[in-house]
Nucleic acid binder design. Sequence first.
DNA 1: TGAATGAGAACGAGCGTTCACTCTCATAGC
DNA 2: GCTATGAGAGTGAACGCTCGTTCTCATTCA
Lengths: 205, 205
Amino acid sequence: MASNVAPEPKPDRRTSILDAAERCFGRAGFHQASMHEICLEAGMSPGNLYRYFPSKETLIAGIAERNRNDAAESFALAAETENFFEGLQQLARHHLVDRSEHEVALCTEIMAESRRNPAIAKLFHDIEVDVKARIRAMLVRAAERGEINGAIDFDNAATMLMVLADGMSWRRAADPAFNAESMLPLIFQMVRCLLTQPAPTETTP
Amino acid sequence: MASNVAPEPKPDRRTSILDAAERCFGRAGFHQASMHEICLEAGMSPGNLYRYFPSKETLIAGIAERNRNDAAESFALAAETENFFEGLQQLARHHLVDRSEHEVALCTEIMAESRRNPAIAKLFHDIEVDVKARIRAMLVRAAERGEINGAIDFDNAATMLMVLADGMSWRRAADPAFNAESMLPLIFQMVRCLLTQPAPTETTP
DNA sequence: TGAATGAGAACGAGCGTTCACTCTCATAGC
DNA sequence: GCTATGAGAGTGAACGCTCGTTCTCATTCA
């Protein structure tokens, strides 16, 4: 991380700018946070900041990319556990409970932005696909080990787990007083049911 | 709802402006849609539009209020069914599947805005509280009828249902290709489990 | 010395908003 | 019947301001 081979002389400068921007964006939103504000937060003049990021757009993209990559990475770690439900529990705690309010706020911002900024949308979508593939792989492995029902639709089940995670995120964003931890037992009750019971008769009345 | 006692001569003008604003906001976001754009969409000059809404802020608040009220209202209707699971199914279809992509987009915008605009936050929170109370009442009534387990924690269960709904919303927002309808069977499998099975042993390891 | 690094005033564009004005039309006065 | 009156709907150029960005110039370091 410290010494790059080729042409990245001081990555710390860039990350500290991203840190400052993240604070401002989380506080005020992508389009209400001004570059002056970010410069102030980063302790840096506009002229200098623009030597590291050529536009506000790239700053937004940088934040979004870093945030999404962090999520995907933390995910990859927990996906490697031997016991499926234990891995899932660890994942849930990290992703649903431990995240700061600030991170949750940033997520809502990225989400809203990705609906109108194609570059962000692509980033967002690619990582979503990656995460879903990982969850699916976790499920398949768990089924092979006999931990969950092998007859379920793995794609739908993976999507459902993402729905649950998203729901917890949105709830945290909507209500600062929401106690994510207290919901975990119910979440796991439902997930166990989802993954171990036979699929319901697919009636669509 | 109507603030003035007597002289509300042409409410259609206000709603048609709100309609135009909703289209613009959904397309570009609250802070990237310009008043000029909204004026154009409404077929009206800025000067005239400002006779109906004194600021962009009030326009945003108007949109958010209308949107939230619509959601709460559609909710109140379905909550009155006799059979609990039937009412829930109807509610789910209306709220999770039938909503247009545009409405979903607007929701992400309102959510992001409510994290930094206290007026919107209050609006948002009040309606959330109202909806949760309604769901809770539905659950209590269902328990009295013996449709669901009477020993569950009604508050947590109501919150969990909202988590599910939020998750579906967010998933739709994140992925335009997401097929909400195909998830309904799984949702209902999980909800049945949540509401009819005994609560899990509350281990927090 | 020369390149890298940094500062901060300045710029033009675009924003939300205002203001001076016109148009429309029902009523009043003759 | 015809014009004067006045109130409200509607207009759009213009304003002040803030924004993202750039430019010029200083400082630091090797």
